[in-house]
């Protein structure tokens, strides 16, 4: 247990704390993309409210791609991954803890920032609550699925663009259900079905992704 808590979780938090700029940059990117829309599309409150949920979600997906490689890149390059593999702790458990820490340091700040984004795009309170719920359930899914793709492409040089090409199509269903939930909230309709579908995707990913990540890491190292 201490292997996972201290050896992985505490270590990754410490590294994240040492490399704050790598965490702040995707957030600033997100903030800027969202600010561009009122300037570029239209500053009219109605338009912003209509495109708002989609803009926030697209920006969140794009900015997550920027920080995703951090998950295994350094560990692969400096050889730490070899040491994890030989530590006797199941690689899938290590992967799960690493993904959890990644979510904590890269998406929780986004959740904290989200009221500001909602304000920029003139979202109403029910819309904001729906947006927050979809982010809460949807962003762990981004981390989990993203980690599989990172593990697969880690051995390739310049895997960054490939990562985006692999992942963006996979995130389409998430985007559709998340924005549709917020749209329903805007019309005062129930949005639990959409949330439930995202939740189901998250549970499936939670159950399977750690094994897929572990397998991909092994293949990448072979």
């Amino acid at each position: 247990m201490s292997a996972l808590l201290i050896g992985i979780a505490q270590r990754d938090l410490r590294i994240a704390f040492q490399q704050k700029s790598e965490l702040v940059q995707p957030l600033m990117f997100l903030l800027m993309v969202v600010t561009l829309f009122p300037l570029g599309v239209s500053p009219s409150p109605d338009t912003l409210q209509r495109i708002g949920p989609g803009v926030i979600w697209i920006a969140a997906i794009l900015s997550s791609l920027l920080g995703l490689e951090r998950l295994f890149r350094d560990d692969f390059n400096d050889g730490s991954l070899e040491q994890y593999t030989l530590s006797g702790v199941p690689l899938s458990a290590i992967a799960a803890v690493k993904v959890l820490v990644h979510w904590l340091v890269s998406f929780v700040p986004l959740l904290i920032l989200s009221p500001l984004l909602a304000l920029f795009l003139n979202l109403t309170l029910p819309m904001y609550i729906a947006l927050l719920l979809t982010l809460l359930v949807g962003t762990p899914l981004l981390s989990l699925i993203g980690a599989i793709a990172v593990a697969l492409t880690i051995g390739l040089q310049r895997g960054g663009v490939l990562l985006a090409l692999l992942l963006i199509p996979v995130f389409i269903p998430l985007l559709i259900f998340a924005t549709s939930a917020v749209d329903s909230a805007a019309l005062q309709l129930p949005y639990y079905p959409q949330l439930a579908i995202i939740g189901a995707m998250l549970l499936l990913a939670l159950a399977l992704a750690p094994f897929a990540i572990a397998y991909s890491l092994k293949v990448s190292q072979n």
């Binding site: 201490s2 292997a3 808590l5 201290i6 050896g7 992985i8 505490q10 270590r11 410490r14 590294i15 040492q18 490399q19 350094d74 560990d75 390059n77 400096d78 050889g79 730490s80 070899e82 040491q83 994890y84 530590s87 006797g88 702790v89």
Partner: peptide
């Protein structure tokens, strides 16, 4: 070949976390 040391962490931290990983 690779030293398996994270360049942002100190020697103490690197070894401390490695020992924890290897129980």
């Amino acid at each position: 070949h690779k030293t398996a040391l994270n360049s942002a962490l100190s020697a103490i931290e690197n070894l401390h976390y490695w020992a924890a990983q290897h129980q």
